[in-house]
């Protein structure tokens, strides 16, 4: 169904056109890295919060020359060069590490770390030690933010960089098993089907809850996921872009406001949680 919306959005966007720089209400142009459903969800969220459709072009296409406000969805789109004096918000681009001056605001895949830790504690009341794995340099800032948030809430966050990601099994073997939960950062270098299976099995074998950074992972057997949806990230991008166009000073990194906790009941029971999960927004059987 979502796929069928895409051409419609393109059509509407073409009809709507874009405002010229200096005009009263600049219409942003969205650049999509591909037609992947994830990018389209973010785009739909963006258009919902923006209140109208926008011009959509592929990441490697030339945007309209008059455009100066952009939404970049995905790493390929976010990494391109932007016209001088343009205003850019990038989302779903976790591997884009550096921002070009103040031109690009990045919507992080990681929800607000304080909220994240708080929701983890609600789900796992005995949480004292959280082991966090990450790999790319672009995840360092989020890992440090999570450490700081944990410290404020009495949770020791053992943040561990796995570089290269192929060392994950080795790192898992080396840890002493005293962790109360495992968390994979939403790091593209690390979150692969193979690594996910490795951590899931490791956690299940030791009875440790394994928390994932995106909702689909709960369906695959993670104990729970604590995440913002791609749609919400698109919404956050729209709010941030609006604020910047209105002259507000936005931080380089913004985060989605809403966090969803999804519990895989079978996986959770296997590690001794439940039977009820009052803090969950969604429970998968």
């Amino acid at each position: 169904m979502r796929r069928s919306l895409f051409p419609l959005a393109l059509l509407l966007a073409a009809a709507a056109g874009a405002a010229r720089p200096g005009g009263g209400s600049p219409a942003p142009v969205a650049l999509l890295s591909s037609e992947s459903a994830h990018y389209r969800q973010a785009l739909e969220g963006f258009m919902e919060a923006w209140g109208s459709t926008v011009t959509v072009v592929a990441a490697d296409a030339r945007p309209p020359v008059e455009a100066w406000a952009f939404l970049a969805v995905g790493g390929k789109a976010a990494a391109r060069r932007w016209p001088r004096d343009s205003v850019v918000v990038a989302c779903l681009a976790p591997s884009v590490e550096s921002v070009e001056g103040d031109a690009v605001t990045r919507v992080s895949l990681l929800p607000d770390p304080a909220v994240l830790v708080s929701r983890m504690r609600a789900l796992l009341p005995r949480l004292r030690v959280l082991r966090v794995f990450w790999s790319s340099e672009s995840s360092r800032e989020d890992a440090e933010a999570l450490e700081a948030a944990g410290q404020r809430q009495g949770v020791v966050v053992l943040s561990e960089r796995v570089d290269p990601p192929s060392r994950l099994p080795e790192r898992l073997r080396a840890i002493d098993g005293k962790d109360d939960a495992l968390w994979l950062m939403p790091d593209p270098a690390l979150v692969t089907a193979e690594n996910f299976a490795i951590v899931r099995e490791y956690a299940a074998a030791r009875g440790i809850p394994f928390l994932g950074p995106t909702e689909g992972l709960a369906e695959r057997g993670a104990t729970a996921t604590i995440s913002a949806t791609f749609r919400d990230m698109g919404r956050a991008a729209a709010l941030s872009l609006r604020a910047r166009l209105d002259g507000g000073a936005e931080p380089e990194i913004v985060r989605a406001a809403r966090v969803t906790v999804t519990v895989n009941a079978a996986a959770a029971r296997a590690v001794g949680l439940g039977p009820a999960f009052p803090s969950a927004d969604k429970v998968l059987p």
Binding site: L92, D187, P188, L190, T192, T214, G216, L217, E219, R220
Partner: peptide, 18 residues
Amino acid sequence: SPARAAEDVFEFFREEAK
């Protein structure tokens, strides 16, 4: 099948072996 359903989850994150 679960493998296909889950493919979408990793499609976004997939970082190819280097």
